[in-house]
Design a protein around this nucleic acid. Structure first.
Lengths: 341, 341
DNA sequence: CTGAAAGCGCTTACAG
DNA sequence: CTGAAAGCGCTTACAG
């Protein structure tokens, strides 16, 4: 703060009323007469009065700041979620502090702690991939309203906002079956990845429903999925004597690696092998052939998360029902599964 | 805050000392004996004492929070800058509140105002494209330390952190000349775009230095550069009777539109027409041929901005020298200007 | 309808 | 080396 800031005291002195009256007038307290309110507000306006956020927060122990934790802010899907969070929070009079865990579990705990220390009213978090053990973050959950989004964990008792991974994956696989594919490979992450497991379940369900036998040889699990891994695992799939006729990669990044490798070997996409990703990143329309994928509406997801969080923050009761909200992603069919003649 | 939080008062009572002593012990005041310090710190630790950030901020009118304003958080280059900002700020004990202007001048003013209202210690901002008139944001600059990055304006008196646009563009054009191109088109934004103008200046300088005549017909200016505009302007360039043999698009997004259009007309890249972009987005390696571009080190830029801002915040004097710091971007040569046989 | 007073948790000039 | 006291700017129960 610089010198010369307008305070309640100053306004009170000028108007010859008490500080209490000024405070109440500005907060539209019913006890205050309309005239008084008007004159106070007018003066406050003309003197550019801005409440001291610290005094206010201090007094009410409320900051109107939300804390957000994501693994990596440059990840496109997460940046769209952040966009939604910022917009909705701003509309509701909240600011947003963002921190990154860089997919580091220790950093994640540290960041959650500093966020609470900085007096945020609640936290929105997307966990690191490797968060198998939630013990270190559980204490934070007793102090503040928290909502998990995207990378969630069912070991944490709180409201969670996710994509309908299972259903969307089911639709992906069904689409592949509909275009005549019979030997559908999946490149997924290991068990610790909540989202990947859900998609895998959808995959299995679709195969079952269409009486297609599950073949472990074309179910590939990797630690950390990426474009590189997509390439490597495609090489592996191509080395099988009984090759797949479709590859469902659990992320667009990996799917792009798949396409690049298939092209290197002059394999026709989608005729010989079709490819599907997940997320609808910007890249998925740049790659050729363009990638069939599941569009995840990040902004909606972010907005929804903020709504539920503020609801918890502003609720009077301590008893909160924890819900799991699924935001629907939609299948976007492009050239990697459908030939435009 | 929930019930049962540890305060200085509680610690004082337990240890039978005054609140002042506890406060000083925790802040390592030289007056306090080592024994007292140790016992205080030990108890504070064991009782999970966390200073009330509001009381502290209120008292010292310092929040240790930095405000950041960007046009669009999902823009890849800006998200890498944000990553750098978050990391450096965290290292130095600051948190970061992020807001978006969505390239809306009114929103930008509003956001700057709320940031100051929320008691941030300083602001890092990247302006909207259309900020010709800085009058509405100037008042904020008198209240708080502010630093501009990437989208800056020379009408604002403050430290500015940018890429070496002019020099980098010079290198781009020189590279095109070196591979034998003689008729180099540029797709840029109009005058109001600071970055675009700098790159354009670099373009002109390179042509001049190599005695290549400037031809207005292949200098294309658009309002809002994008992939779409890249496509449209390529169509325009191709309709000329004297076509260019290289196209320098001021952003990767536009350059990708250029490549897509050239491919549609089966024009050989780079033999017939070479293409260069700017930024080194993720897409630039996905497109085929891969795109020659200028890598802008976003993280470094973000970290640098934070360093200068905190320096201003923590400086005792009011007189601050405003500098313009250029972060060097490097030319990355890929297939769109160089044929791999 | 309005005011005086207490207090939120911390820091710090002053006194000893 | 330590303590008592004032005060940062606000809100609110209490009193009138």
């Amino acid at each position: 703060m610089k010198k010369g800031v307008t305070t309640l005291k100053k306004l009170a002195k000028i108007l010859n009323v008490s500080v209490s009256t000024v405070s109440r007038a500005l907060n539209d307290h019913p006890d205050i007469s309309t005239e008084t309110k008007d004159s106070v507000k007018k003066l406050a306006q003309s003197m550019n009065y801005v409440p001291n956020i610290f005094a206010k927060g201090f007094r009410k122990s409320k900051s109107n700041i939300l804390g957000v934790l994501v693994p990596n802010i440059t990840h496109y899907f997460h940046s769209t979620i952040l966009k939604g969070i910022l917009e909705e929070a701003s509309l509701r009079g909240y600011r947003v502090i963002i921190s990154e865990s860089n997919n580091d579990v220790l950093k994640q705990t540290e960041m959650l702690n500093t966020l609470t220390q900085f007096g945020v009213d609640g936290i929105l978090a997307s966990l690191t991939k490797m968060t198998k053990n939630v013990d270190s973050i559980l204490p934070v959950f007793n102090k503040l309203p928290i909502i998990l989004f995207d990378k969630v964990s069912n070991k944490v008792p709180c409201t969670q906002i996710i994509t309908n991974d299972e259903e969307a994956a089911f639709n992906v696989v069904e689409h592949l079956i509909n275009i005549g594919k019979k030997r559908i490979a999946i490149i997924k992450e290991r068990e610790f990845s909540y989202n990947s497991e859900k998609r895998y379940t959808g995959y299995l369900k679709a195969l079952k429903e269409h009486n297609i036998e599950v073949d472990e040889k074309i179910i590939i699990s990797v630690d950390d999925i990426s474009q590189q891994q997509g390439k490597r695992m495609t090489n592996l799939l191509l080395s099988l004597k009984n090759r797949p006729d479709a590859i469902f990669a659990i992320t667009d990044y990996a799917a792009i690696g798949v396409i690049q490798t298939l092209k290197k070997f002059n394999i026709k996409i989608p005729e010989e092998i079709a490819v599907v990703g997940f997320s609808n990143n910007l890249n998925s329309t740049i790659i050729e052939p363009s990638l069939t994928t599941v569009d995840q509406p990040g902004e909606t997801l972010g907005k929804t998360a903020v709504k539920y969080l503020i609801e918890e923050i502003e609720s009077d009761t301590d008893i909160v029902m924890h819900k799991t909200i699924e935001i629907k992603g939609s299948l976007i069919i492009r050239e990697s599964t459908f030939k435009v003649k």
